[in-house]
Simulated scan of single mutants.
Amino acid sequence: MTFRLLLDEMYPAALAQDLRMDHDHDVVAVVESEELRGCDDPFLLRFATEQGRCLVTENVCDFAVLARRGSHAGLLLVHGRRWSRRPAAVPKLGAALHEAIKTGQVPGPDEVRWLT
Rank of each mutant, 00 (worst) to 15 (best):
M10H: 04
A73D: 10
A88D: 14
E111S: 10
A88H: 14
E32T: 10
R81K: 13
G104K: 15
G38K: 14
G104N: 06
Q17Y: 09
L75P: 13
H79Y: 04
L19V: 14
L93V: 06
L77H: 04
G70V: 05
E50K: 06
V56N: 01
L36S: 04
S84T: 04
F63I: 00
A96S: 12
F43G: 00
R113F: 07
E58N: 02
V27H: 10
P107A: 09
L115M: 12
R82I: 04
Q17I: 09
T57R: 03
V106W: 10
L76D: 09
S33C: 11
I101K: 11
P87R: 12
M10C: 13
Q51M: 15
G52K: 06
H25L: 15
L7G: 06
A14G: 02
H25W: 15
H79D: 15
E34A: 13
D41Q: 14
A89T: 03
A29G: 11
Q17W: 07
L7Y: 00
L45C: 12
Q17V: 10
V28D: 08
E99G: 10
Q51T: 12
E99D: 14
C54P: 02
L75A: 00
H72R: 12
T103I: 10
T116W: 08
L66N: 07
K92Y: 04
V60S: 12
G108N: 09
L44S: 13
Y11H: 09
L19Y: 12
G74F: 01
A14D: 06
D18M: 12
Y11R: 05
L45H: 09
D26E: 15
T103Y: 01
L115T: 13
V90T: 06
T49H: 08
R53P: 04
W83F: 14
E32R: 14
L75W: 01
V31I: 15
D26W: 10
D62I: 06
R4V: 03
H79W: 05
G70W: 00
A13F: 03
S33I: 00
R37V: 13
L76A: 07
L77R: 06
C61D: 05
D22E: 13
P91F: 05
A95T: 02
H25T: 10
W83G: 07
Y11W: 08
R85L: 02
L19P: 09
